[in-house]
């Protein structure tokens, strides 16, 4: 009697079951599987170890692996939840889920706060805010004098720092975002609404029917 040898599917390090990831995120199982195709492409673009290194993240974002950008660094660091210098598949899916159009605003507000809390103090402070404005000016054609930048930072703090203690805490940030909803526009990626339709090349033969979930 013969036997059937089935070659096991080889997954990248940090691979997690799409069913579990879908249950923990806004994505369906099919969407998680589509994201795995995207993840494999990015994670094999330079160092072919199945993990996304910062250079690969920069290459995907900017078509340039050497382009330094403070904000891309911050996004990478937040995606890298285990803080081991790379993004694995589970981290990739869980982080991108925050950018899904259907994800709760509170999650987006919290993620944005952590992005801006450069020094991980639990607050956004004036020197951090000024550093970020200067970093943006440095990467753009906008040219503003130091006095003008300081005025913008002071005015922003006057509006956001309701308690007047010189720093923006998570509650003040939430209130400020409610008054200025445009601040969350970067926190939503329409592409994620239905990644399997937007990127048909990523559609795989799924073993799990989303309707059965």
């Amino acid at each position: 009697m013969g036997c059937v040898c089935v070659k096991p599917v080889k997954h990248t390090p940090g691979y997690e079951d799409p069913v579990i990831l879908a249950s923990e995120t806004t994505f369906t199982v099919s969407e998680v599987e589509a994201l795995y195709e995207l993840f494999k492409k990015i994670s094999h673009s330079i160092i072919k170890d199945g993990l996304i290194h910062k250079e690969e993240f920069q290459l995907a974002l900017f078509r340039n692996s050497n382009k330094k950008n403070l904000f891309a660094d911050r996004v990478f660091d937040l995606f890298d939840a285990k803080r081991n210098g790379v993004i694995d598949f589970g981290e990739f899916v869980r982080s991108l889920s925050i950018f899904h159009p259907d994800t709760e605003k509170t999650e987006k507000i919290s993620f944005a706060f952590r992005l801006y809390d450069l020094r991980h103090t639990g607050f956004i402070e004036p020197d951090e805010l000024k550093e970020m404005v200067l970093a943006l000016l440095n990467e753009s054609d906008l040219c503003l004098s130091d006095d003008v930048v300081q005025q913008i930072v002071d005015k922003t703090f006057a509006e956001a720092d309701k308690k007047g203690d010189g720093k923006i805490d998570p509650d003040e940030w939430k209130e400020f975002v409610v008054q200025n909803p445009s601040l969350l526009k970067n926190m939503t990626l329409p592409y994620l609404k239905d990644i399997t339709m937007a990127f048909p090349s990523f559609v795989m033969k799924s073993e799990v029917n989303d309707d059965e979930m």
């Binding site: 078509r63 891309a72 753009s140 200025n180 937007a198």
Partner: peptide, 25 residues
């Protein structure tokens, strides 16, 4: 300039994650 500091920061290309998808199609 009638923008708050966060509006200015949000203009950074580093926040535009659509690049992750566009380059992989």
């Amino acid at each position: 300039l009638n923008m708050n500091a966060f509006d200015i920061i949000s203009l950074s290309a580093g926040f535009d994650l659509s690049g992750l998808f566009e380059g992989s199609e």
